[in-house]
């Protein structure tokens, strides 16, 4: 088991290093001119050159690279865990990421857990009568939900639940501006407000999460329901479930056996999906102005803020790899066949 985890960690680390290299060089190969963008299109030659110098872009690429990973004397870089400073605001990027990342992770994780919790009973209902009405309807639903533009559904939800019904708060952020945010401990508003015992912030935070989470759960439930339904049906029609029935084992015990067998393989797939959804969170954040890492990424990209772009890609890739790894290891712990 340890060897298994070690091997996976090593592969992930190598991948991250390669990723860091590729990101750095790839964006410099693309035909974009960040200096012109930052100094303004009609900047004089002097101001262009001084901007270029200020950003360190007049140095040879390999020197820039050295600064990026932190092997140049006097500068800290990736090796020290320092992402550098934003070219636009001059603020340390790590600080920005620490502020925006928890917002995204909170949204995605809550949505993931909810979508999974919904999909399990749905999958079980399908497996009871494969090909029955419930099964076919669930299948159609998962096909539909899995192919929807989430940003549009977010807008629709806003229209109905905010504009028409007035149940939801305006889609303008994570908290009502009138509510004092709880002191930052983890960055997750739900957890921080619980830690601070701040009922008002907790309630307002959840209220603001309602629509984005609903949208995300709807879209996410497509692939998750499809996957759970498939596994559940496979297990419930398997020879071992039949054999347990033939051995006179109680339905409750059989259900436990079946659940373990059906859910174990979904873990790895959930891990892949998590990374995919994390990278795509920008859409829902934009619709609800949540200010998560996705929106930070958009602003960095549109401003040609290279250090911020590099940092965002690496952070998201690292978290995706880590979540995938953790769920894959959990899967291997449940399934002895994978530990070889």
């Amino acid at each position: 088991m340890l060897a298994f985890v070690g091997r996976r960690l090593l592969t992930a680390a190598i991948q991250l290093v390669a990723l860091a290299l590729i990101v750095f060089f790839a964006i410099r190969l693309l035909p974009a001119d960040p200096v012109a963008r930052l100094a303004g299109q009609d900047a004089s030659r002097e101001s262009y050159l001084s901007s270029q110098h200020a950003l360190g872009l007049d140095r040879p690429v390999m020197v820039q690279f050295g600064a990026y990973i932190g092997v140049l004397p006097g500068s800290s870089g990736l090796l020290e865990g320092d992402f550098g400073r934003s070219w636009v605001t001059g603020d340390p990027i790590s600080q920005e990421i620490r502020r925006t990342l928890p917002i995204t992770l909170e949204l995605i994780t809550i949505s993931f857990v909810l979508a999974f919790v919904i999909s399990v009973p749905l999958g079980m209902i399908c497996a009871l009568r494969p090909g029955g009405i419930a099964d076919r309807m669930t299948f159609g639903y998962s096909l539909f939900a899995g192919s929807q533009p989430e940003f549009w559904w977010g807008l629709l939800f806003i229209f109905f639940f905010f504009s028409v019904l007035g149940w939801a708060p305006p889609p303008l952020g994570r908290l009502n501006p009138m509510v004092t945010p709880p002191p930052v401990v983890t960055g997750f508003i739900t957890i921080d407000s619980l830690l601070a015992g701040d009922g008002e912030a907790l309630w307002d935070g959840l209220h603001h999460l309602m629509l984005p989470v609903a949208t995300k759960v709807f879209v996410l439930s497509g692939p998750i329901v499809k996957m759970v339904r498939q596994n559940m049906t496979r297990v419930m029609t398997s020879d071992y479930v039949l054999y347990q029935q033939a051995s006179g084992i109680s339905p409750g015990r059989i259900a436990l056996t079946a659940l373990k067998n059906a859910l174990a393989p979904t873990l790895t797939l959930l891990g892949i999906l998590y990374g995919y959804i994390l990278g795509g969170a920008v859409l829902i954040e934009t619709v609800f102005s949540l200010g998560g890492i996705g929106q930070y990424a958009v602003s960095a990209v549109l401003a040609f803020d290279y250090p911020a772009i590099q940092a965002v890609v690496l952070v998201i890739a690292a978290i995706s790899l880590f979540v995938y790894l953790a769920l894959d290891v959990a899967h291997a712990m449940l399934d002895p066949r994978l530990q070889g």
Partner: peptide, 10 residues
């Protein structure tokens, strides 16, 4: 291993 949407954006 690259995040699809963000990489696309970039």
């Amino acid at each position: 291993a690259f995040p699809v949407f963000i990489t696309g954006m970039i």
